Simulated assay, not measured.
Amino acid sequence: MRARPRQQDRDAAIASHDDEPRSSGDKSESVSAVGKVFVILAALGDRGPIGISELSQHLGMSKTTVHRFLQTLRTLGYVAQEGETDRYRLTIRLFELGAKALESVDLVREADTEMRRIGQLTREAVHLGAFDEDHIIYIHKIDADYGLRMQSRIGRRNPLYSTAIGKVLLAWMPPQEAAHVLSRLEFKKSTPKTLASAQAVLAILPSVRERGYAEDNEEQEDGLLCIAVPVFDRFGQVLAGLSISFPTMRCGADTKAHYVALLKEAGRAISEKIGYREPTAP
């Protein structure tokens, strides 16, 4: 078994390329070399363990060039050689770098730009909410320019069953998990339109998932409509719900369709910023 390269070996490999002054021509070659490194890494990621000859042919590079880059990457710990063969594969070190980048991602910070954009375009209240012990909790909010007064603030908890964000969080859970969560709740009517049972909520979840958004039509507050879409994490799980709230008197068919489109666009943008990638069709 090959030992994992030591940090001093990595440092030496890097230093070996930086110990001489570089001309403008050298700089161009350096940029080209960096590009080749990432092409090699991408090919290893796509094709799995592969030999130098096959990799050289696939990339259209000479075997000497490919071997030289692979040896440097092996010294740095980004690729490993399988036994005594000429087959190379990626190591977990790239994942470690990616994990460090993801640690610095802040959902609220990434969502804020999109939420403010929606707020400026619509002048309505925009919320970001997450699952919290059988409720939703608002973790960010952009207030409406119209002076709309809502029973919401950052840190406030509201029921899953009577909010658009709550329905979004439930709709992307496995059905058995959603049923289990709802079975623990005490249903209280906030308005005459509040759904009164777990069965009533479960019945609408498939359509929520199919159309990609949920609604609270005066179910939490009289005279107030709310639309919400999911925000996905890097594993494809729903991390939060993004919503817009506005009075029913400002809800025409065109308005609603426009708001749904804005929310879906923003939901995708936020999801991508925190590492989510849309599944590719087979």
Rank of each mutant, 00 (worst) to 15 (best):
A3Y: 09
P5A: 11
R6W: 07
Q7F: 10
A12P: 02
A12K: 06
A13I: 10
I14G: 04
A15R: 12
H17S: 11
R22I: 09
S23M: 01
S32I: 02
A33N: 02
G45C: 08
G48Q: 06
P49W: 08
P49N: 11
I50C: 12
S53A: 13
E54P: 01
S62N: 02
T64N: 13
H67Y: 10
R68M: 05
F69V: 12
T72I: 05
R74C: 06
L76D: 05
A80R: 12
Q81R: 15
E82W: 04
T85N: 07
D86F: 06
R89H: 09
R93A: 12
E96R: 14
E103I: 02
S104W: 04
V105Q: 06
R109D: 10
A111Q: 00
G119H: 10
Q120Y: 10
Q120D: 08
L121K: 14
E124T: 03
V126W: 01
H127N: 08
L128P: 00
F131K: 03
E133L: 07
H135Q: 10
K141V: 06
I142D: 01
D143E: 12
D145I: 03
Y146D: 11
G147A: 05
R149P: 00
Q151M: 10
Q151G: 15
I154K: 12
G155N: 07
R156Y: 11
N158D: 14
P159A: 11
L160G: 01
I165V: 15
L170F: 12
A171G: 06
A171N: 06
A171W: 04
M173G: 04
P175I: 11
P175D: 13
H180N: 15
V181M: 13
L182A: 14
L182Q: 12
S183E: 12
R184W: 08
L185H: 04
K189E: 15
K189G: 12
K189A: 15
T194F: 09
S197L: 14
A200Y: 09
V201C: 08
I204T: 15
P206L: 11
V208T: 13
V208C: 08
E215F: 05
E215V: 14
D216K: 02
N217D: 13
E219L: 08
E221F: 04
L224Y: 02
L224S: 02
L224T: 02
L224F: 05
C226V: 09
P230M: 07
F232N: 01
V238K: 00
L239Y: 05
G241D: 01
G241T: 06
G241H: 01
L242P: 00
L242R: 01
I244H: 01
S245I: 02
C251Q: 13
A253Y: 04
D254I: 07
T255P: 01
T255H: 07
A261T: 12
L262E: 03
K264D: 04
K264M: 14
E272M: 12
E272C: 09
K273V: 03
Y276M: 01
E278M: 14
P279Q: 14
P282Q: 11
